[in-house]
C-alpha cells in the first residue's frame, strides 16, 4: 500500500458554512412485494391500479410516494422462474428510480449475474447461503459487498433464536447471532432479519433481537416482520436500532400510507428522507 497523500487541511470550504452535523443515519422504509410467476401475490387495495397484480405498477406507486427502496421476493417454483424473474427485473429497472433488491431461490453466481445485469441493485440470498456459506464469499468477490444482502429467518425457541429455512418452515442448527456474524465476516453488505414469531402478527418488530444484531454487527440491519402501525416502525429504529424497516401488507392494503408514516417519524425525531 502506498501512503495516503491527502491534505486534510483543504477542508477550507467548510469552515464558514454550517454542516448539518447529524450523526444519525437516514432510516429507510422498504415495501416488500411477493412475486409469483411475475405477478404480485398477496393483492392490494390500491384503487387506482390499472392491473392490481402488476409488480411494476405497484413499484412505481411506492417510489413516487416516498419508499426508499423496494424488495421483490420471488416465490415461484416453476421451470421458467428464472426467465420470468429476470424479465420482471428488467421492467422494474426501466420504470423505477429508486434502488431495489431481488430475492427468492437465488443459489449461484450465474443467478446473481443475470439479475444485476438486468438492473437489480442488490440480491438477497437466504437458504442457499445457509446450505453453502462460501456462496457469500464468491458473490462478494465477484459483485462487491454492497449488492449482497443475506436474509435470515429466525424463530425464538427455548430461549434461543434459531435460524429457519424454506420461509421459516425448517429449523436449522444455527443460532441467529452466530450466523449473522459469520455472514458479516464473509463480506455481506446487509442483513435482512425476519422474526418468524413476529411476522404477520402486526404486533411490532423483534426489537430486542434487532438491537443485539445492530450492536454486535457493523453492517446495516433491515428489520422485517410485525409492522402494524407507525409506532412499530419508530420502535424498530429506536429500540431495535434498525437501519431500515421492511413491511408488506400494511403498505399494500393502504393501512399505513408511506408519506404519512415518514411525516410522523420525522415529527418524532427519526431522520427520514421526505
Amino acid at each position: 500500500m502506498r501512503p495516503i497523500t491527502n491534505n486534510y487541511n483543504c477542508n477550507y470550504k467548510l469552515k464558514n458554512t454550517r454542516l448539518r452535523g447529524h450523526k444519525m443515519i437516514t432510516k429507510r422504509i422498504i415495501p416488500c412485494l411477493d412475486i409469483k410467476n411475475g405477478r404480485t401475490v398477496k393483492g392490494t387495495n390500491f384503487v387506482n391500479l390499472r392491473d392490481a397484480g402488476d409488480p411494476v405498477e405497484l413499484a412505481k406507486i411506492y417510489s413516487d410516494t416516498g419508499a426508499d427502496e423496494l424488495v421483490f421476493l420471488d416465490i415461484s417454483a416453476t421451470e421458467e422462474r428464472r426467465k420470468t424473474l429476470s424479465d420482471l427485473v428488467l421492467r422494474v429497472a426501466s420504470q423505477v428510480n429508486i434502488p431495489f433488491t431481488v430475492g427468492g431461490g437465488i443459489s449461484s453466481v450465474e443467478d446473481v449475474d443475470i439479475l444485476l445485469k438486468n438492473g437489480a441493485d442488490k440480491v438477497s440470498i437466504n437458504s442457499s447461503a445457509v446450505k453453502r456459506p462460501e456462496l457469500i464469499n464468491e458473490l462478494v468477490a465477484k459483485f462487491g459487498s454492497q449488492c449482497i444482502v443475506v436474509a435470515i429467518d429466525a424463530k425464538y425457541i427455548n430461549g434461543e433464536w434459531i435460524v429457519h429455512l424454506v420461509g421459516g418452515k425448517v429449523p436449522t442448527e444455527r443460532n441467529l447471532f452466530d450466523w449473522a456474524k459469520e455472514v458479516e465476516q464473509r463480506g455481506a453488505g446487509e442483513i435482512l432479519f425476519t422474526s418468524m414469531d413476529h411476522d404477520g402478527t402486526k404486533d411490532g418488530f423483534a426489537n430486542t433481537a434487532l438491537a443485539r444484531l445492530s450492536n454486535e454487527l457493523n453492517i446495516p440491519i433491515i428489520a422485517s416482520g410485525g409492522a402494524g402501525n407507525i409506532q412499530h416502525f419508530k420502535d424498530a429504529f429506536t429500540e431495535g436500532k434498525a437501519d431500515a424497516a421492511l413491511a408488506a401488507s400494511v403498505f399494500h392494503f393502504g393501512e399505513i400510507p408511506i408519506p404519512e408514516l415518514k411525516k410522523e417519524l420525522k415529527t418524532q425525531g427519526i431522520t427520514v428522507r421526505i
Binding site: 444519525m24 443515519i25 437516514t26 453488505g189 457493523n218
Partner: peptide, 11 residues
C-alpha cells in the same frame, strides 16, 4: 457509536 456502519447504505 454504532450508527456509522460500513458500507454506508442510505439516502
Amino acid at each position: 457509536d454504532r450508527s456509522i456502519k460500513i458500507p454506508q447504505i442510505q439516502w
